[in-house]
Simulated scan of single mutants.
Amino acid sequence: MTDYAEEQRNELEAIESIYPDSFTVLSDEPTGFTITVASDAAEDGENVEATLKFTYVERYPDEPPLWEIYAQENLEDGDVSEVLTLLQQQAEENLGMVMIFTLVTAVQEKLNEIVDLKKNRQEEEKRQKELEAEEAEKVLFQGTVVTIENFLAWKAVFELDMMELRRKRQKEEEQAGKPKLTGKQLFETDHNLDTSDIQFLEDAGNNVEVDESLFQDIEDLDLDEDDPDFDPLGMDSDED
């Protein structure tokens, strides 16, 4: 006949010697205790941790102990579910034998696996961001490939912008008191600036006022009439 109490006492002493810093007895009847299990530290120093609580049942190890995750750090909900499923599988495979060390070892390996998966996922996300940044840089450098579709779309927007600009200009001119011009008149005005300039010069020439006070009386000028080149009326230049 199996002495369950004796087997449980012997295993408890062994577990305490194996995990002296993470083993804590919570109750004697029934015997309940916790063992804290941590993964190996990741490169960034972050690890995952689980405190497992076990409670012996009367017929342990022929019946599996009770267990739960008493506390945890950095475990996601999915990770917790996987750890509990793993404990169930290991307990079923080891019925009839003391199994606490086996269960704890399996959980520790699982935590290491979780850390590795997190590391791989982070590296993949980093690579993906780098690829997206490279693609964005290529698009920025190469520009957008012109197709019939995007050209027509651009042309439609451009024409709307130009139409709005002309309306705004016409409105400003109306507000300034200028007569409203037709599109043809605006075109002709823009293309006859040279004619307008000539007309301006002609109008200016016809309305020039001369200040005679700026000129001396010819009789007041000290001129040498004996000079052979003296020609006050400019006759010589006319003959040339």
Rank of each mutant, 00 (worst) to 15 (best):
M1S: 09
D3V: 08
A14Q: 15
A14G: 08
I15N: 04
E16A: 15
S17R: 13
D21I: 00
F23G: 00
F23N: 03
T24R: 13
S27T: 15
D28H: 11
D28P: 02
D28E: 15
T31F: 00
I35S: 06
T36D: 01
T36S: 03
S39R: 04
S39A: 14
A41D: 13
E43D: 11
V48C: 15
T51S: 15
F54P: 01
F54A: 04
E58W: 07
R59N: 15
P61R: 03
D62W: 05
E63K: 09
L66A: 04
E68M: 04
E68A: 09
I69C: 02
I69V: 12
Y70N: 10
Q72S: 13
E76A: 14
V80E: 11
T85R: 14
L87G: 00
E92N: 03
E92C: 00
L95I: 09
G96V: 08
V98S: 07
M99Q: 12
I100K: 02
F101T: 11
T102Y: 00
E109W: 05
K110T: 08
K110E: 12
L111K: 04
V115T: 13
V115M: 09
V115E: 08
K119M: 02
K119G: 00
Q122V: 04
Q122S: 11
Q122C: 01
K126Q: 10
R127G: 09
Q128I: 05
L131V: 12
E132Y: 07
A133I: 01
E135T: 00
E137G: 00
E137K: 10
E137I: 01
K138D: 05
L140C: 02
F141A: 14
T144K: 11
T147S: 07
L152I: 05
L152Y: 04
W154M: 02
W154I: 00
K155D: 11
K155N: 09
K155C: 06
F158T: 12
F158Q: 14
E159S: 03
L160T: 08
L160V: 05
M163T: 10
R169I: 12
Q170A: 15
E172Y: 05
A176T: 07
K178I: 04
K180D: 06
L181T: 05
K184N: 04
L186P: 01
E188D: 09
N192A: 09
L193A: 15
D197L: 15
I198P: 01
Q199S: 05
F200R: 12
E202H: 03
D203W: 08
N206L: 12
V210Q: 05
D211H: 13
E212L: 13
E219D: 12
L223D: 12
D227V: 04
D227H: 11
D231Q: 10
P232F: 08
G234Q: 02
D236E: 10
S237D: 14
E239P: 01
E239S: 07
